[in-house]
Amino acid sequence: MPFVATCDLFDTFKDSARFLAPVFRDFGAVTRFSGPVVTVKCVDDNSRVKELLATPGHGRVLVVDGAGSLRCALMGDMIAASAVQNGWAGVVIWGCVRDVAALATLNLGIKALAAMPRASTRRDQGIVDVPVELPGAPVRPGDVLFADEDGVVLLTAEQASSLK
């Protein structure tokens, strides 16, 4: 999926595109990324995040509904490095990350709420490929996400296929 700037997407789709609230910070070395969405819903347990990012990403974007929890990080440098190695385009986390200095060197788009040094406790919980609700918009598996310095835009696969 070729990258298209989020402002240009608004000009094209207006209110038929979905926009996440401007609450996410950039943590990866890549600030402009796009790809088909895979979702995971988990709170304070990154078991599914680690598992998914260890599989072939094929340019996809993992969207993590961590319920906005600031209690622990759902991704750190080792899991993010696995995502790079496996070809993921990016990760958007409604929650925290850690190892910020290392994340900034990785060729991966990473957006999250904040940094938190505390790691999550793995309890083998989390649900994959379910619709999730992040601040500002619902996110469905198979949506196409575009992220840059101006924000995050979500299109349906049909809308994204109309882009030149």
Rank of each mutant, 00 (worst) to 15 (best):
L103A: 10
T12W: 00
K164P: 12
A80Y: 08
G35M: 10
S16C: 05
T105A: 13
R140G: 01
A67H: 14
V38F: 01
A114F: 03
D148F: 08
M75C: 08
N86M: 12
D65A: 10
G151P: 07
A112T: 06
D26N: 11
D45W: 10
L74A: 05
A73K: 09
S69W: 08
A54L: 06
A81I: 04
N107K: 13
N86P: 00
E149D: 15
V153F: 05
W88C: 03
T6N: 02
D45R: 10
K111F: 02
E149F: 05
V23P: 06
F13K: 02
W94L: 11
A29H: 01
A101M: 05
A89R: 08
F33Q: 05
G151L: 04
A102K: 13
T39E: 09
S47W: 12
E133K: 04
P135C: 06
D8L: 11
V92M: 05
C42A: 15
G57E: 07
D124E: 15
T39R: 09
V30S: 02
V97W: 00
E158Y: 08
R25A: 12
L9F: 09
V61I: 10
L163E: 03
P2Y: 08
F146K: 06
G126E: 11
A104L: 03
D8W: 00
I93R: 00
A147P: 13
V23K: 02
P138Y: 01
A115H: 08
D65H: 13
L53Y: 03
T121A: 12
L20M: 09
A160W: 06
S69G: 10
S34H: 07
A21Y: 00
V91D: 07
A73M: 13
G109N: 03
S162I: 01
T31S: 13
P2G: 10
N86E: 11
L155V: 11
P56R: 12
R122V: 13
A114Q: 10
T12A: 15
G136I: 12
V40Q: 04
L53R: 02
C96W: 01
C42L: 14
E149H: 08
V132M: 08
A83E: 05
G35D: 11
G136W: 03
V63I: 08
V40Y: 07
R122S: 10
G90C: 07
L154N: 11
A147E: 05
L52K: 01
M78R: 12
